[in-house]
């Protein structure tokens, strides 16, 4: 088992300024330690504001931890945070936005162009693919964003609650792709608020609560503990 990513006592603190001499400190993450193996699907569950997205930003390399460290193996490890077209420019076509996104992820222009048809096929939004994104529905935007993320080959794919967006047909398709990826060699870190999703899709899971780890281990166990804590009714087939 090769470790692709290892968090060692990771902490993240924000200093938020309110005025000239007034500021407060917000501890977004506290003493987080875990390891992710190559090819593993690792789930992160937690309620809003628990620190899930901050953790994902640290894992994606966008933010450096303020304490502890994140260890990666030698050599380039391509990590990509899957967003649902959040950074898309509304006045450009889906195709142009896909090219931009791919180049932002570090692909060459030629490589980005060669990946375009596969992404277009997966997004499956017909002629809209070449129309400005401002004419898209939220679902169409999500489709293009998701397609761009999953079709690009990265070492670690970080997914932030994206499978809850889009229509039923798209969700099914997204889940199928996820399963394909999971059965392959793709390392996935999936953030979700759905215990069922974590239980069904992940090999291991972590429950983050008030910026710290509450539970870590087998996804069934973590989901049950999470449900019990919040007395939630876990939907059996939420994807």
């Amino acid at each position: 088992m090769t470790i692709i990513l290892s968090a060692k006592n990771v902490g993240l603190e924000f200093k938020i300024r309110e005025g000239l001499f007034k500021s407060f400190r917000h501890q977004a993450l506290q003493d987080i330690s875990f390891e992710v193996a190559r090819g593993e699907t690792f789930g992160v569950i937690g309620k809003n504001g628990s620190g899930k997205s901050s953790l994902l930003q640290v894992l994606a390399g966008l933010l450096a931890p303020t304490s502890g460290r994140l260890e990666l193996p030698e050599g380039p490890i391509k990590r990509s945070l899957l967003t649902l077209g959040l950074g898309f420019r509304a006045d450009l076509s889906g195709a142009d936005n896909v090219i931009l996104s791919l180049i932002l992820q570090g692909f060459s222009k030629q490589r980005a162009h060669s990946m375009l048809s596969e992404i277009q096929e997966f997004a499956d939004i017909g002629e809209y693919f070449n129309k400005p994104v401002r004419t898209y529905s939220a679902g169409m935007r999500a489709r293009v964003g998701f397609a761009t993320g999953v079709c690009s080959e990265v070492d670690v794919l970080l997914i932030d609650e994206v499978l809850s967006v889009g229509d039923a047909q798209f969700k099914q398709r997204a889940e199928r792709t996820m399963l394909d990826r999971i059965s392959g060699q793709q390392t996935v870190i999936l953030v979700s608020q759905s215990p069922a999703q974590i239980r069904d899709l992940c090999d291991r899971a972590l429950w983050i609560h008030d910026s710290s780890i509450k539970e870590i281990g087998e996804p069934g166990h973590v989901s049950r503990a999470y449900v019990k804590h919040f007395e939630l009714d876990a939907p059996t087939n939420s994807i």
Partner: peptide, 17 residues
């Protein structure tokens, strides 16, 4: 390459409006 493409796309985006 990214700076060049982004700048061109921004101009394209502005022109389309």
């Amino acid at each position: 390459s990214l700076i060049d493409l982004q700048a061109r796309m921004s101009l394209k985006s502005e022109a389309s409006r």
